[in-house]
Computed example of a mutant assay.
Amino acid sequence: MKKLLYSFLLLSSATLFAQKNPTTKFAVANDIVGTVDMFNTHKNKIQSTQTYKAANLPQNLKKFGYIAENGLVEYKFKSGQGVLDRLSLSELNAQYGLAKNTPVFIDGYEFTNTDTLIYGDILGNMEVIDNKGSKAVSIITKK
């Protein structure tokens, strides 16, 4: 009975980590992914913003449709202001000793294209989780 209970608790916790956070609103600038909360801390560097609903993404943002569930905001930096730390998800996987093509979860959203660049400012809490029997990096953007 204890083994059954332990197995259930382990499965439940893994499932909780992989759930999408409904309050996360993703944003993109220069084809690099961040969150609206992250960009709010860099307001002085922002030239313009444009908010899109998932169904109305322009062609250049359609590749980010899988994270546009709550809409997607496109930011444009002022000239010379777009210098924020960034890294690819494959580099993040390598830091954790995982295969470079291992999907990464950000607030429960699965990023399967590990060539995707993200801003370092969204790297709040990170851990390796069990994802259907294999390991994956999970990032929770709220610190």
Rank of each mutant, 00 (worst) to 15 (best):
V73K: 08
P58Q: 11
N44V: 07
E91M: 15
D37F: 01
K62A: 14
Y75G: 04
S48Q: 11
I46W: 01
G82M: 01
T49E: 11
F64P: 00
G71W: 00
N70G: 02
A68L: 06
Y75N: 03
G97T: 07
Y66H: 12
V83E: 13
V83P: 00
F64R: 02
Q59A: 15
M38A: 14
I46E: 08
L92R: 01
K63E: 07
I46Q: 08
E74W: 03
M38C: 13
L89E: 04
H42I: 08
K53G: 13
L98V: 03
Y96G: 07
Y52H: 13
S88F: 04
R86M: 03
T41E: 15
Q81V: 01
L98C: 02
G71H: 04
A54W: 11
Q50D: 04
L84P: 00
R86T: 10
Y52P: 00
L72R: 06
L98S: 07
D85I: 04
A54P: 00
F39D: 02
L87W: 03
K45L: 13
N93E: 04
A55P: 07
A94G: 05
G82P: 01
K78S: 09
L98A: 06
Y75S: 04
N40W: 08
T41V: 12
I67L: 07
V73N: 02
G82N: 07
V73I: 10
M38S: 15
